[in-house]
Design a protein around this nucleic acid. Sequence first.
DNA 1: ATGAAAGCGCTAACAA
DNA 2: TTGTTAGCGCTTTCAT
Lengths: 365, 365
Amino acid sequence: MADKPAATAATQEGQARTKMGAVKMDDIARMAGVSKSTVSRALSGSPLVNEETRARIQALVESHSYRVDTRAQGLRKGHTHTIAVVIPLLHEHDQPISDPFFLELLGHIADAVADHGYDLLLSKIGPGRTNGMADLVDTGRVDGLIAIGQSTAHLGLERLAARGMPLVVWGAQLPEQHYVTVGSDNRAGAERAVAHLIAQGRRRIVFLGQRTVPEIRLRHEGYVAALAAAGIEPDPALDVPTRFASAAALTAMRSLIAGGASFDAVFACSDVIAISAIRALQDQGLKVPQDVAVVGYDDIQMAAFYNPALTTVRQDTATGGRLLVDLLFAQIAGRPARSVMLPTELVVRASCGAALSGTTTPGSR
Amino acid sequence: MADKPAATAATQEGQARTKMGAVKMDDIARMAGVSKSTVSRALSGSPLVNEETRARIQALVESHSYRVDTRAQGLRKGHTHTIAVVIPLLHEHDQPISDPFFLELLGHIADAVADHGYDLLLSKIGPGRTNGMADLVDTGRVDGLIAIGQSTAHLGLERLAARGMPLVVWGAQLPEQHYVTVGSDNRAGAERAVAHLIAQGRRRIVFLGQRTVPEIRLRHEGYVAALAAAGIEPDPALDVPTRFASAAALTAMRSLIAGGASFDAVFACSDVIAISAIRALQDQGLKVPQDVAVVGYDDIQMAAFYNPALTTVRQDTATGGRLLVDLLFAQIAGRPARSVMLPTELVVRASCGAALSGTTTPGSR
DNA sequence: ATGAAAGCGCTAACAA
DNA sequence: TTGTTAGCGCTTTCAT
């Protein structure tokens, strides 16, 4: 590890940097026999620079693999070319949760951000400290914020938006809300899923999810609406709160079963929760979907591969992620941005006990 | 959304910013009746500043919620206080994969980075373009790099390390390698798992994973070693390459079955792959573990909740993530850093058909 | 078509 | 203990 660099160093004649002392715009200028300003212009594609000069500069830039210092550039131009993604739920109870849904969404956001030529800062700021989010832009680290899940931060988010901070959040669209959200139609998605369960002849349907989260509250409304449409009175005993982690869901389901509750279906507020619930049911010798039908939410990749394959409400993370980013850039550019509610799709597979002839298996369609 | 800010604005007397025009250090200095330098000193906890002055400055800073501009600070001090995490596999074939293992590791890295008071830049640079990684630090965007999975970028990573760039990669420890890695003992982990399968009486064991990835190659070595120890000759027909995505694994497994291969166990190179494989087996009416025993790798949270619960080789993402970060900071500080190989643990659950009396179910221990 | 000079917001000598 | 003066590396008037 000692001589290799030296050897390489001897190769290039200019040898800009061996380890430190990166080449700067001034250096390129000197070598090209022009001024800093000209180099700057050449690099930013200004038309007021001689083609020949530009070529000479380009060559130098290449051969020395010079890159403009974005930090200095940003300081001068007043922006950062990076946006932050904040995932409150990433640190539920100081333990990273690992819901695949987040990574899927994050992946799409990363793509979209990169397409705009921006960098992405991932922040672990919790929902409690929205001023932490504000700092991110106040200290000139990012140009805007994307929050995934409003969680309990609603008020804080309102404050940020009121301050004119570029901000888009993935989550529920609340009444009287002043910040921009992108999210699926939680109410309709849940209603549709529960209606489907009812159509299968299920009547005692468990609601598995924590209603303190705005999106979950909307899903609960959909649940209630579907029941109402069928003339069913919601039973409080079947309203089971649980966090998004597998273990929490398992525990919740187990104690429901232990409590002797009677039910024939479960509407779980995420696929991860659904999977844990199924596990708990099977452990007790209950068959899914025969004894208990289960529907999840999200349609994470693994949903199709579980056994039984999971019926679930698909959230379109691809267009969601892109929209999140587009709306943020609109705000940064000073253009108006309006909240968007994405339609959901009920993906019927085996776990809900629907027309088994049509069981959707991955790859089979 | 129009009058709220105005109302709030009237509340605070100083009213630093309504929307733009963030307050700067100069402003605080003027208000405090001191110079910029004094403010700078006060804020950085310098001992050469009068306590009373410091208090006055602090008060102003609070009331105007002033934050120093990290971009300017970094420009001056020569660092960025942010490090980049590059996940090559995040964009296999232009499609984001969503292996929970990555999120778990990423979460721990995020924690550790935050503990150091640094920011985390998430980059989608692919394994092919390691010069893209170099740019990240050359353009002054980050102080160092963490690559998750060396994938096919080995040579590029070597070059970066040779240039003296702070870099740590999660992956396999290759011979003659000049960059620092953190990773589990892939060879031993795989060997142990396969040996366990053999101990259950299985002899025809499928290897499910792509050997072009260094870590997978090591796992294959372990697989071969375990077979050899039992006097079993590896059958090339049972060496099934597959990418990390669920769909790819499903396809691979299906065509193996369709090809009429005979086998009684599967060693899958990730839990996601294992789950898809089980799905494929069950679709064909094969029982797991009775007909085919399956072992996975990673021990993602969901492994315990699958049906059957997955026997798997646990990789300790918590200490892995922390180590990755610690070693990177060591390099940044100019301290020496040595590669670390983490021990793995075989977590025996139902899918491998081991002593079923002891089936490990989540929460039951 | 190019150069000189003035900053972007901050820190770090060097003085006082 | 505090202020003054230079920059960090770049962009951008304003001249030429």
